[in-house]
């Protein structure tokens, strides 16, 4: 009888995507999800949403099959997509987010440059107001187990006069309100990250500074990139899970540092392979 090893994604050594130890911890942690053009991390974000809400991970880890009711409260803050996008994409994971009471979508997309930010060249007060309203919305809930996912904050850096330091400070404040903050950001080189960029007027200068500072504060880094050998039909890209600059304060939390190759099919089926 032959048996093949099950190749599943686990970010922590306790074979989880979102660890119980993080949810019960009194501390706040930061995970950075960076991606390069051609490797959108939508499927991982969907799995994070699923795992945060009910502990399962249907598409990427078959061992995580025990459903837990109200595992944590999840706040999705997006500068790039509306709620429909997540509701539609999470259907594959067996989730109907429009009915999940613990899923809260904070829309920073629909009216961002029409109502929320009235003058992009002088937007600091507006962005302060936006983040204040986000803090308020998150603080009203008394749940201890909060997870926040923040998508594409770099759009603010590229289009307004906010500095990377200011945005970082706001993000740190946001991080303190939850157990784990996931930041999804593009990591294209040299468009977004270019360490040799000396031009302070180039938005890439600010985005590079922003990402480097985040890397200094993160506990887990998850990076997506295409195959270095070129495009393949059966492999989409490489996923690398690594430790961030800051360690976890609890010894029980340990990261499963690993690199995977993965394949996403047209029907959103995910296959994970160990490297």
């Amino acid at each position: 009888m032959t048996s093949t090893q099950q190749q599943d994604l686990s970010i922590f050594k306790d074979n989880t995507i979102v660890s119980d130890h993080i949810l019960t911890s009194p501390n706040s942690y930061l995970t950075l999800i960076s991606h390069v053009e051609g490797t959108q991390p939508t499927w991982l974000v969907n799995s994070l949403i699923e795992s945060s809400l009910q502990g399962t991970s249907t598409l990427v880890n078959k061992d995580l099959n025990r459903k837990l009711i109200n595992r944590s409260e999840l706040y999705m803050i997006s500068f790039l997509n509306n709620e429909d996008y997540y509701v539609r994409n999470c259907k594959k994971n067996g989730l109907d987010l429009s009915r999940e009471s613990k899923f809260k979508f904070i829309d920073c997309f629909t009216d961002l440059f029409t109502k929320i930010i009235t003058n992009p060249e002088n937007a600091i007060a507006d962005i302060d107001r936006l983040f204040e309203s986000i803090f308020k919305q998150i603080s009203t809930s008394k749940s201890d187990k909060k997870i926040i996912i923040l998508e594409s904050p770099e759009i603010l850096l590229a289009s307004t006069n906010i500095s990377s330091i200011k945005l970082n400070n706001l993000i740190l404040k946001l991080n303190r309100l939850c157990r784990n903050l996931y930041i999804i950001t593009s990591h294209d080189h040299p468009q977004i990250v270019d360490v040799n960029n000396q031009d302070i007027n180039d938005p890439a200068f600010e985005t590079t500074d922003f990402l480097i500072k985040l890397h200094y504060k993160s506990n887990v880094n998850i990076h997506f990139e295409p195959l270095t050998t070129g495009r393949a039909d059966d492999i989409t890209g490489i996923l690398t899970v690594s430790k961030g600059s800051l360690p976890f304060k609890e010894s029980t939390i340990s990261i499963n540092e690993k690199s995977y190759t993965y394949n996403v099919s047209k029907e959103s089926n995910i296959k994970i392979y160990f490297r």
């Binding site: 509306n82 629909t110 992009p120 060249e121 759009i155 289009s159 938005p203």
Partner: peptide
């Protein structure tokens, strides 16, 4: 970028709405 990105972002918002 403080004009063209908000413009395209706004277009995307109309599109998705």
């Amino acid at each position: 970028s403080s004009i063209v990105i908000p413009f395209i972002h706004g277009m995307r918002s109309i599109l998705k709405s």
